[in-house]
Simulated assay, not measured.
Amino acid sequence: MSVHQLAQVPAMTIGAGARKQIGDLAASLVAPGSPVLLVADPGLAATGMTAELESLLVAAGFPVIVFSDIKSDPTIAQADAAAKVARSSGAKLMVALGGGSALDLGKAVAVIAGADAPAETYALCAAPLPAGRLKIICMPTTSGTGSETTRTAILSAPEGAKLWFWGDELKADHAILDPELTVSLPAQLTAATGIDALVHAVEAATNRNAHAGNDLYAHEAIRLVALHLETAVKDPTNLVAREGVQRAAALAGTAIDNCGTAIAHAIGHAMASLRPMHHGRAVGVAMLASLPWVVSNDPDGRFAACAVAMGAEPTAQGFIDAYGDLVRRTGLRIAVSDDFTGITPEALAAQMVRPENAPMIRSTVRESSPADLLAIAQAVLALR
């Protein structure tokens, strides 16, 4: 019997209206009057969320500097720009408000601001992360990446490659899960982010690193997505469903923090490095295309256990059927041929084995040959 470890989970405040405790939580982490860097998704300004959070912090006695120069798939350059703001303002606390892009950027900035080196210095663990980071509070407005519970951040290089940053320094001190922050998320994004959480949980429960201790998080995340995602998509103001999917994302983030992901993420990152594509949709369709190959045998019954968590027939095929059915019921756009016009299967397969994606290929439960990866790339591009 092998020995496993479970990483520390950030402290969490959960429930409708939880965001209103931000002042007290900030005061528990930094000295009164400390400057706060608020890294906020630019689209949230129109909803009033950014202004509300800024007001709550100011009312608690904290001067706030807002950084909103963020795009989907945040870049190394944006991280460097935000870190410069953090240093010049003397910020002691970073609060990230938004989806995975804002949370990943904010966490990276909180860490790299402790030194003068550019962000790319630390990509792919090329150098140890600097000491003396800012305190971190994450407030997700989507329910997908689970960045609020992970020690990972993803930033895009100038050529589009998705570079990962990893280390305990990147883990939030506190996560606030307020389902009211997710109500304005459109149906397509609710579906894509929810499927992202599901893929996280499934890959963490089935890859080479998977173990029974981590299944506590992964299987519960799978159960919650299966139970609540379709309702959250079709009835966006249903706070029970919204909170269920939000908790699923945080648990799935914890699951990948312990055991990592697998081939669907290698494919999804490869796709997004070739053409702009939402991460949740990318990994969702990648899993749909690659599952028949991955699950060609299930000797340990791990995919069957995922099927049980979904309330499906307790077999590997039962999971494949249940996953495909849920993806389609959420309305996730599956066909990618229009998005990838001019991209050959060979080009996609080549991206899948780049250094930033290769670890996810290696962690996949089934060994892959170049011919296997080409066949999977063909299956992805042929999805209908």
Results as ranks from 00 to 15, higher is better:
Y122G: 13
M49C: 13
G99A: 03
L93S: 06
G114I: 02
E52Y: 08
A77I: 06
F62G: 05
G100F: 01
K71H: 06
T47H: 12
L53G: 07
G48T: 08
T75G: 02
D104R: 03
A60V: 07
P74W: 00
E52Q: 15
V58I: 15
E54P: 02
A77M: 09
S55M: 11
G98V: 02
G61R: 11
G48I: 11
G48K: 09
Q78A: 14
C125F: 05
T50L: 09
K84P: 04
T75P: 00
A86I: 08
I70A: 00
D116W: 04
P74V: 00
L57V: 04
A79P: 03
G98M: 02
S55H: 13
I76A: 01
A117L: 14
K107F: 08
E120H: 13
L93T: 03
A102Y: 02
S101P: 03
V64S: 01
E52V: 08
D116A: 15
A81W: 02
F67S: 07
G98R: 04
T50G: 10
A81G: 05
A81F: 04
I76Y: 00
A123V: 10
K84L: 15
A126R: 15
T50E: 14
L93Q: 04
F62S: 05
L53A: 05
Q78R: 11
P74R: 01
A60W: 09
S55E: 13
M49A: 15
A96S: 15
A96Q: 04
V64H: 03
V109L: 10
A81C: 02
G100Q: 04
T121E: 10
S89D: 11
D116C: 06
D73V: 02
Y122A: 12
G98F: 02
A60I: 08
S89H: 11
V64E: 03
L53Y: 08
G100W: 00
L105E: 04
Y122R: 13
V58D: 14
G106N: 06
S88N: 12
M49L: 15
P63S: 10
A113C: 12
D80I: 08
S72E: 10
A86E: 08
K92W: 01
M94W: 01
M49E: 13
C125L: 11
L97I: 04
A86S: 13
K107W: 09
G99Q: 02
L124D: 01
I65Y: 07
V66Q: 12
I112P: 00
A81Y: 00
V109E: 05
A96E: 05
V109K: 05
P63T: 10
L56A: 14
K71C: 03
V64K: 03
V95S: 07
L105M: 10
V58H: 14
A110E: 07
E120D: 13
L124V: 03
C125P: 00
V95A: 04
A115E: 13
K107Q: 11
A83N: 04
